[in-house]
Design a protein around this nucleic acid. Structure first.
Lengths: 190, 190
DNA sequence: ATACAATCTAAACAATGATTAGATTGGAGC
DNA sequence: GCTCCAATCTAATCATTGTTTAGATTGTAT
């Protein structure tokens, strides 16, 4: 797995072959199949580990935000997600493109996914009670919108839709302000 | 190309091999390489054709919308995009995942992409002049946000992030209302 | 009828995902 | 210390795939 993570991080998923992993680990070409039933299973294991790091980064970003402002916390979640995706584009690709991995068979991946989504619901319910959230908005709808918005930004960057960006400061700036405006528009006052 | 389109439409991109295309076309395995220098070149040609259909669908959807309301027209663009993507998920995948195709070498793909983006700018400038657009919003930013939002919804659906949906009515409903709310929030009055 | 360009076939090559049979290893229990 | 067993490895092999090449076939313009 460490060998696979190395190759994915340095050369991308598309350059990853089981044989390259075996070579990097100093082992014969068939050896990895003793531990993973297929290439997809290997990638799923890598995805589980990466998803753990993503979830940790997201929840830590939220924990560092203003405790009294649930929508700021929601924004922090989105920001943490974006920063992690752009700092780890190839691993993000493994997590999100569900034709490389077997998402349905991994309860770990599903649980991590649900953890973030549940936290979003909690924060929006909080914002509803404090009156921060615009009263005409439906929480279900907003969760979907936030996920799509952040996922779209991250995926566009990773998919190469922003060729002018040099995956370091620019995306952080442009996506940061876009997300800021998006969250601002959810507020009762804004 | 027709054989390739058939296979992509019925079995998905991942099941597409040059040999399968050749077989479907009733031709020897090496024959396709006389017309396309590589599998990537074949897929790029398929993507150009699909992108033409997407652009046409989007601009027609816009043309059918209320001519006096630029933001309704912007919404129609997004809606047309989403409907096409969900009706043609595998072709949408070919267009958007730029590791399967050589986007940089196809002026056709780039032009079609720019055509839609330019139209969005025009509509938002119009909305600015008529006073429909909230005055504190920057147009650059909104174009980016709209693209990310719609792309995110389409990609999440195609990437299998909505397993509970049966790619027919539900996504249309959920994404329709989400997009409606999103556009509503851009208005000076909303 | 000839020449030429386009297209095809047939055969081969290297890389890859995957399987299998058998060797090696290292520790648990007597 | 010896035996047994499970885990892991190697080596060989297979089918599939992207790609190339040499040569055959075909249609068309002159």
């Amino acid at each position: 797995m460490a060998a696979a993570v190395d190759i994915i991080g340095s050369q991308g998923v598309e350059r990853l072959s089981v044989r390259a992993v075996a070579k990097q680990a100093g082992v014969s070409p068939g050896a990895p199949f003793q531990h993973f039933s297929s290439k997809e299973a290997l990638l799923t294991a890598v995805a589980e580990q990466a998803m753990g790091r993503l979830t940790k980064a997201v929840l830590e970003a939220e924990a560092a935000a203003d405790p009294t402002d649930p929508l700021k916390r929601l924004e922090a979640i989105g920001l943490g997600y974006l920063q992690w995706a752009m700092a780890n584009p190839t691993h993000f690709e493994v997590i999100s493109s569900r034709k490389l991995i077997d998402f349905a068979s991994s309860t770990s991946l599903q649980e991590q996914n649900e953890a973030i989504r549940t936290r979003m619901f909690q924060l929006l319910n909080e914002a509803r009670q404090t009156g921060d959230l615009a009263p005409d908005l439906q929480i279900d709808n907003i969760v979907l919108s936030c996920r799509a918005f952040v996922y779209g930004l991250a995926r566009m960057a990773v998919d190469g839709h922003f060729p002018e960006w040099h995956m370091s400061d620019e995306p952080a700036n442009a996506t940061r302000t876009a997300l800021g405006v998006f969250i601002q528009r959810l507020r009762a006052s804004g």
